[in-house]
Amino acid sequence: MRVGLISYPMLFQRNGGLQVQVGETLRALAAAGHQVGLVDPAHADRADFDLLHVFGSMNGNHRLVAAARAAGLPVVLSALVAPSWNAAAGRRARLAGWLAGALSAMPLETTYAHIRSALRQADLVIALGAAEKTAIVRGFRIAPDKVRLVPNGVGARFFDADPAPFRAAYGIAGRFALCVGAISPYKNQLGLAQALAALALPLVLIGPVEPAQAAYLQALLDRPAVRWLGALEHGDPLLAGAYAAAAVVALPSRGEVFPLAILEALAAGTPAVMTDESALTLPASGFALKRVQPDDRTAIAGAVAALLAQPPCRAAVSALVRDFSWPQVAAQLSACYEACHGHH
């Protein structure tokens, strides 16, 4: 089957979890035998593909879904909907959209309307976890049987990561907390740094920073125990080594659908603290994975302190995500593609 992967036009102008997801999915599908490639909207032809896989339901992607459907092309949509959407939030969003149109006397469309349009037009919707599926069904009124669960994967290199090259490259010794992600208020690195101040635990940051966040980065660097290493390519062995070297990985961001940074940290055997605004759930993981509200600095500090006081067995931590492999993801996606194409 010829599968085209596509997302919003500026996707690869930055580095982040979605870019990694698309790239790893592309490689895993190719290894599984699919004819797969990234779609160039300027030169793509309907005859080039048997199915389109759209990543993300925002940033105008509802237009991609609509255009594909108009051309008779089956569409699988990885929704990437925030788990915070529920029935009440959906009702408020629909009311707000109606009011905006009524007050302006213009055919205004809200972000909610764009997301719902993409979800409704897609032949099949993929959710990364049960919480995201619930948000899709309740917040956007999508039929449950239209939504399949397919999680993200973890690269094999994270399971046998070596911390020594990372420590040698950056001259880092002793215990430290690690946060991997774009430097921004949304990722909440400053709140994390403030929470860790009482623990006297150094914080190491890895991730890109946009010019608009220069002041935020400076506020972080003004704190005595914070060090920023810049961005590392996802395939760089030093990134895997950073996860393995850290005493704890923390990501108390404003929201994460299914954070790869947490999966990769656990694969490396490192316990983690993460936002409770996420679709990621792992059974019996409380010994190594703590969930906190992003604005609760006391809870963040307490969760980190608990993991430092009783460090879990690294092999047991890795075992939590042992089944999250990209080949398994490719197999599940293949089943979704076959089901979608067969019913079109």
Rank of each mutant, 00 (worst) to 15 (best):
residue 123 D to G: 11
residue 66 A to H: 01
residue 281 T to C: 12
residue 170 Y to A: 10
residue 53 H to N: 06
residue 236 D to P: 05
residue 124 L to Q: 15
residue 112 Y to A: 06
residue 270 T to H: 07
residue 204 V to Q: 12
residue 24 E to K: 15
residue 156 A to F: 04
residue 242 A to V: 05
residue 138 R to Q: 12
residue 95 L to N: 09
residue 7 S to K: 03
residue 144 P to A: 08
residue 115 I to L: 07
residue 49 F to W: 15
residue 234 H to C: 00
residue 37 G to T: 04
residue 305 A to F: 06
residue 221 L to V: 12
residue 34 H to L: 05
residue 337 Y to A: 03
residue 269 G to Q: 10
residue 257 V to Q: 06
residue 161 A to N: 07
residue 271 P to Y: 07
residue 76 V to T: 08
residue 95 L to F: 10
residue 60 G to C: 06
residue 44 A to K: 13
residue 247 A to M: 01
residue 56 G to Y: 01
residue 173 A to G: 08
residue 190 L to H: 11
residue 245 A to L: 03
residue 205 L to D: 05
residue 266 L to R: 09
residue 3 V to M: 02
residue 88 A to C: 05
residue 110 T to F: 11
residue 190 L to G: 10
residue 207 G to Q: 08
residue 312 P to D: 06
residue 156 A to E: 07
residue 306 A to Q: 12
residue 327 P to Q: 15
residue 285 S to M: 04
residue 285 S to N: 08
residue 14 R to S: 09
residue 259 P to R: 10
residue 76 V to E: 08
residue 170 Y to F: 14
residue 312 P to W: 00
residue 279 A to I: 05
residue 139 G to Q: 00
residue 263 L to E: 03
residue 92 R to P: 03
residue 55 F to L: 00
residue 18 L to P: 09
residue 74 P to C: 02
residue 265 A to S: 14
residue 343 H to M: 13
residue 2 R to M: 10
residue 239 L to Q: 02
residue 66 A to W: 01
residue 10 M to H: 12
residue 81 V to C: 04
residue 120 R to L: 15
residue 280 L to W: 04
residue 274 M to D: 08
residue 121 Q to F: 13
residue 29 L to T: 11
residue 203 L to E: 00
residue 5 L to Y: 11
residue 116 R to G: 06
residue 183 I to Y: 02
residue 99 L to R: 15
residue 64 L to S: 01
residue 309 A to Y: 03
residue 257 V to T: 13
residue 145 D to G: 05
residue 264 E to W: 08
residue 106 M to W: 15
residue 73 L to I: 14
residue 314 R to W: 01
residue 203 L to Y: 00
residue 160 D to G: 12
residue 222 D to I: 15
residue 329 V to I: 15
residue 38 L to G: 09
residue 270 T to W: 06
residue 80 L to S: 07
residue 267 A to T: 11
residue 15 N to K: 14
residue 36 V to D: 02
residue 261 A to F: 00
residue 68 A to M: 01
residue 156 A to R: 03
residue 260 L to K: 06
residue 201 L to S: 05
residue 255 G to I: 07
residue 226 V to W: 00
residue 83 P to Q: 06
residue 269 G to A: 04
residue 324 F to A: 10
residue 258 F to N: 01
residue 84 S to G: 14
residue 93 A to R: 09
residue 61 N to Q: 06
residue 186 Y to R: 15
residue 161 A to C: 02
residue 150 V to G: 00
residue 283 P to Y: 07
residue 114 H to E: 15
residue 249 V to Q: 10
